[in-house]
Design a binder for these strands. Structure first.
Lengths: 172, 172
DNA sequence: TACATTTCTTAAGCTATCTTAATTTTTCTC
DNA sequence: GAGAAAAATTAAGATAGCTTAAGAAATGTA
């Protein structure tokens, strides 16, 4: 049930950076415990979180990993974590992979695509408040676990404004 | 090189609806000529375009198609088009698919995921103007071909504001 | 060719969200 | 457990992008 090839696990500390903008991604990461995130830094210096990767999730810059081009994102640990590595060299040639592995990859890609499409819909059509409420419903455990400012960055608003929204929601 | 199974082609007219919100998607569509779009209608009645599908592209509500749940999107033709159908029944069971088909699907999912991630980055970190310029660079032919209001809907702004932006860009 | 319909433009006023900045609270570290 | 650092709160002023509305241009259609 878990055919995607990974190396043995490694422990990393909160704040450790696994991939920087400009690097070429040689690895994807699978999270065993803890939590990683991927994010971009825009041209005004602000961070925008693309993905949280708690236990069980995979994270990489897919374009950089696949096409060996410079990454546009950073990946770091937002908690002390245990991770394993998915090596580019194991995925160079699809035709050498087992059918089961291909099926597993298909399902992971597909689910990821469904999730990213939902996020695009939310960014296009929902208000900040609606996106926050949706986040709390979709990721109830992350809401407990993550600092407000990271959640704000993920839903696309400033921490100040999220703080405001929380107060308004609470007192209603 | 084109293993994904489709039926023979069918002609449809501009405005024809292929999938409505609430329907369960029995088909995906492959565009031979013309152009389809997928979009949502939010709770204030506004349309937001998720995808343009010109020649060669596939469209569906992946979540609805995969999990046979009610669709959240609409799909219609924005030009007279020729399309072929991808039937749900042909994709019920991954294990019955050819390895080549699985590889082709993997590549399509992967490329789609790379593209949707770029869009999320743009929505989180770029201004309306920057997103418009990026759109014109990524889809130069679509910019010629599509009415302004559809482009505005795709990049997440009102047609009035895009009209404004175009004027500002032109006179600079 | 003209009428109807849709799309685009322009402009004024409005609002959701941001910025800045100061204060408080929480979390780390020795 | 005290002091430092980071995170969260609060509030006032600013702005990107929206709304409304009316006219102009383009497109479709008889």
């Amino acid at each position: 049930m878990d055919n995607i090839k990974t190396s043995k696990t490694k422990k990393i500390s909160k704040g450790d950076i696994l991939l920087s903008q400009g690097d070429i991604a040689s690895y994807g990461y699978k999270v065993k415990s803890g939590c990683l995130r991927s994010y971009v830094i825009d041209n005004t210096g602000k961070e925008h979180i693309l993905q949280f990767a708690p236990e069980g999730w995979l994270v990489s810059d897919l374009d950089s990993f696949t096409n060996q081009k410079p990454s546009v994102i950073f990946i770091d640990a937002i908690e002390d974590s245990e991770i394993s590595f998915i090596s580019k060299s194991d995925f160079k040639d699809f035709s050498k992979l087992e059918k089961d592995t291909l099926i597993e990859m298909n399902i992971k890609f597909r689910n990821n695509l469904i999730a990213t499409n939902k996020r695009i819909i939310a960014l296009l059509s929902a208000t900040a408040k609606e996106r926050y409420v949706e986040f709390t419903q979709t990721y109830p455990t992350l809401v407990q676990r993550l600092p407000l400012k990271l959640i704000a960055s993920y839903i696309g608003i400033t921490p100040e404004y999220l703080s405001d929204l929380r107060r308004k929601i609470a007192k209603k």
